[in-house]
Amino acid sequence: MRATELNARTLARATGLTTPQFIVLSIVSEAGETTPKAIAARAGVGQATATALLDKLEARGLITRARGSTDRRIVWVRATDAGREMLTSAPDPLHQVFEQQFAKLRDWEQAMIVASLERIGDMLNAGGIDASPLLDVGPVDRK
């Protein structure tokens, strides 16, 4: 938890983005063009949360949103040049570092870690908890 917090602070100092904003910007940039629904699914958050994050990114000029030309109900999201530049200049987020290190482990080591984490989750009765509110840092009761 402490490593996550320190990484989030480093990211915020370097970019002004929260970790969830960075993740959403990464998803948009990687996709080239995508929808808020697809972003929410990929990020593992609700569509309302994804929309709020997109609002913040758009306000900073890091993404653009445009209605579809054939179906006006569809909103297409794209990263701007400034958004792509932000991603290249940002420090590696902790989850990417973890992914890289985890991928280097042998299959049996990966399986042991996953099994241990699942067991810990079960011990904490965390199976039914929605973790998506934890993707946004700050006081839980803020408006």
Rank of each mutant, 00 (worst) to 15 (best):
G32E: 07
I39G: 05
R73A: 10
K56C: 04
Q21S: 15
D107C: 06
S26V: 03
G68W: 08
T80I: 02
S26H: 05
Q47I: 00
R84K: 12
K37D: 15
F22P: 00
Q100T: 13
T70W: 10
V28S: 07
S89V: 06
Q96Y: 11
I113S: 06
G121E: 09
Q96N: 12
V45Q: 10
L105C: 05
L57C: 02
T70N: 13
R72C: 09
I129W: 00
T70S: 10
F22T: 02
G121T: 05
L124I: 13
A111E: 10
F22A: 03
A41M: 11
A126P: 01
G128P: 02
R73P: 05
G83E: 05
G46Q: 14
D107A: 14
E33H: 05
G83Q: 08
L25H: 08
M86D: 01
I120A: 10
S89I: 06
K104W: 05
Q100V: 11
V45Y: 02
A41E: 15
A41N: 14
E58H: 07
A90F: 03
G16E: 08
V114A: 15
A14V: 02
L105D: 09
A14S: 14
Q96I: 00
G83A: 10
N125L: 13
G16L: 07
G44H: 04
S69P: 11
I120H: 07
L11Q: 02
V24S: 03
L124Y: 12
S89H: 12
L124M: 13
L105K: 04
G83Y: 05
V28M: 08
Q96F: 08
R72I: 13
R60C: 01
T34K: 01
T34P: 01
L94W: 01
A82M: 08
L25K: 04
R67Y: 10
P20H: 11
A90I: 03
G32C: 06
G127E: 11
L25D: 09
P20E: 07
L11E: 04
N125S: 15
R13Y: 13
R106N: 10
R9F: 00
V45A: 06
D81E: 13
L94N: 03
L54K: 00
G83F: 05
E58R: 10
V77N: 03
R73T: 04
V28G: 07
L117D: 03
K37G: 13
A90Q: 03
V28L: 07
K37L: 12
P36N: 03
I23M: 04
G121I: 03
E33V: 14
V97G: 01
D55R: 04
L53P: 00
L87P: 02
I39K: 05
A12F: 02
R72T: 15
E99L: 12
D92Q: 09
D71T: 14
D122E: 12
G46A: 15
G44R: 03
V24C: 03
